[in-house]
């Protein structure tokens, strides 16, 4: 067990290192930097600019910049934001919390819908309910996330049922804690719905396919022959047998929801990483960009690690395999 998990952990670690090197490379290779626009401003002397660049080590070779960035990561700063004139970490943390709230809620909701819907559909494979589900997931699949989010926004504006943006009402501070939660939930609804709708078709289709695959397995027929009730048959025999590919999909879905979330946040002005990163990219505030990517990678790796742990737990065959290696 420990060896398997340690190996997966090492995997995740190397992934994070690799991604950080690559993003560092690509962001610095991109033309221009934060101070380029100041050059056009006649009020700032070229000497001041050079001094600024030197202060932020932008005139140093790549390797040295990377080393000092790693150093700042180790000190919990994750680089320095030019625009905010502050270490990146605290800036990132506030927004990451909001993004996580959105992503994790969407993950839970999406799976909570996809599992029963997929199982239900697989059980009726080829019949009318299954075909309706197949069609509607196909339709959802071809609608771009952006159109989906905009459509929901329009709906919110027209009906006034939900706030059309932001994370809290103006009077949030004065609300009681129960009302605060209610207010937050109302603000979360639209972005979460948009996120869920964007991943739901993929999840439902995968659950349906995986369950349909095992539905005709001999051991299910055998269990039916032993008089196991239909519901138990579906949820405690078929689903666990189909779990292996779904667990991997679970890890992947966290990543997909995170990247989907960045877009939805921009559209629905959710104060998360999305708008923050966009702003930083436009301003070439490179350490913020790198920090954002680093955070996403860590989150993705954590999702996959979680999936590996789950896989170890649901499939005893993996345990034996890893013990034999």
């Amino acid at each position: 067990m420990m060896r398997y998990l340690l190996r997966r952990l090492a995997h995740a670690f190397f992934l994070i290192i690799g991604v950080s090197v690559l993003t560092f490379l690509f962001t610095t290779l991109a033309p221009g930097n934060y101070f380029d626009e100041m050059r056009l401003n006649p009020q700032i002397a070229p000497e001041t600019l050079a001094a600024l660049r030197a202060q932020y080590q932008l005139d140093q070779p790549l390797a040295i910049r990377y080393a000092s960035w790693v150093n700042s990561v180790l000190h919990g700063e994750i680089g320095f934001s030019f625009a905010y004139n502050s270490p990146v970490a605290p800036l990132l943390l506030v927004r990451a919390k909001n993004t996580l709230l959105l992503t994790l809620t969407a993950t839970v909701v999406a799976w909570a819908i996809a599992l029963p819907l997929g199982v239900w559909s697989a059980e009726r494979l080829g019949r009318l309910p299954d075909r309706v589900i197949s069609w509607s997931t196909a339709v959802l699949l071809v609608i771009p996330d952006l159109a989906l989010a905009l459509g929901l926004l329009v709906l919110a504006l027209r009906t006034g049922w939900f706030p059309a943006g932001g994370m809290a009402s103006v009077d949030f501070k004065s609300l009681s804690s129960l009302n605060r939660i209610r207010d937050l939930a109302r603000h979360m609804t639209l972005p979460v719905v948009a996120l869920v709708l964007s991943t739901l078709p993929i999840l439902v289709r995968h659950v349906r396919a995986a369950v349909a695959d095992v539905l005709h397995a001999p051991f299910l027929l055998a269990a039916e022959g032993h008089g196991i009730p239909p519901r138990t048959l579906l949820y405690r025999y078929a689903l666990p047998a189909a779990a292996n590919p779904l667990v991997s999909l679970f890890g992947f879905s966290i990543g997909a929801l995170l990247s989907g979330s960045l877009l939805i946040e921009v559209v629905m002005s959710w104060p998360g990483l999305g708008p923050f990163l966009l702003e930083a990219i436009l301003a070439r505030d490179i350490y913020v960009v790198i920090g954002g990517v680093l955070f996403s990678t860590i989150f993705l790796a954590a999702g996959n690690f979680l999936a590996d742990v789950l896989l170890y737990w649901v499939d005893p065959r993996i345990r034996t395999e890893s013990a034999s290696r």
Partner: peptide, 18 residues
């Protein structure tokens, strides 16, 4: 399974793997 029980052909396939 209660009054009439079946024993299937392939023992490796007739048991749930997990």
């Amino acid at each position: 399974g209660n009054r009439i029980a079946l024993i299937f052909q392939e023992p490796s396939l007739a048991l749930h793997p997990t």
